[in-house]
Design a protein around this nucleic acid. Structure first.
Lengths: 109, 109
DNA sequence: CCGGCTAGCCTTGCGTAACGAGGTGCGACG
DNA sequence: CGTCGCACCTCGTTACGCAAGGCTAGCCGG
């Protein structure tokens, strides 16, 4: 497995929740958006993203709603619940703590 | 499993290698040292650390040498190889890239 | 008309890695 | 004598990212 995959572990949730903070999005869009905002760094596979969304939905952190486009095409738009917003806050704090702890080790004062 | 465990994934190597950059250490000491330097944030279990050390040793990134103390007690001191130093550099760069990519997502400009 | 491309959703199986629990042996302390 | 800290180890469980596969649909080129 690529090294990046290991680093990602535990961080996908906060990334997805962050995306949804600004506006509802559908899965495919999140993949592109993550890629764009990270300047090409993150390429989530669909096999990664969709299971994450389902897990978040089961956990009531997001809700998904099907929306039919003019063409008849269907998309599932996800948005944050209140619990999701709280979780996002927690996760951002956890990330901040974690990353500064790592920095304490790898760049000793 | 605790959330922290997931965040840690892929980062244990760089943490351990960083510790060894300053001086050789033995396993038990690394656990205490990680805890101390991270101000209590990291509590690696022994069931986490020892397998990591064995993996690093198999990969020739560290070498372990038994040393007998006055009391008859034995410890296994690990130190970085040249390959280990190079790996440490790579991993530090990878961490820097990764953490700034995450920051791009979770704190949009 | 067919092949391949993008969009869009999904699931299954695999591999990696952290962890808790368990095991060993030692010396010191009460 | 029991138990605590030190110091090493292994095994089974679990989480989760990913590649590969499958489905529908529209569009474009040959």
């Amino acid at each position: 497995m690529r090294d990046l995959a290991q680093l990602l572990k535990g961080n996908t949730d906060v990334l997805i929740l962050s995306l949804l903070e600004s506006e509802p999005m559908y899965g495919y869009q999140m993949i592109k958006e993550l890629e764009r905002r990270s300047q090409g760094f993150f390429h989530l596979g669909e096999g990664t993203l969709y299971p994450v969304l389902h897990r978040l939905e089961r956990g009531k952190l997001v809700v998904g709603r099907w929306r039919r486009l003019d063409g008849g095409q269907e998309r599932r738009y996800y948005s944050l619940t209140e619990a999701g917003e709280r979780r996002l806050e927690e996760q951002m704090t956890a990330w901040a703590r974690f990353s500064s702890a790592v920095n304490l080790i790898i760049k000793p004062a």
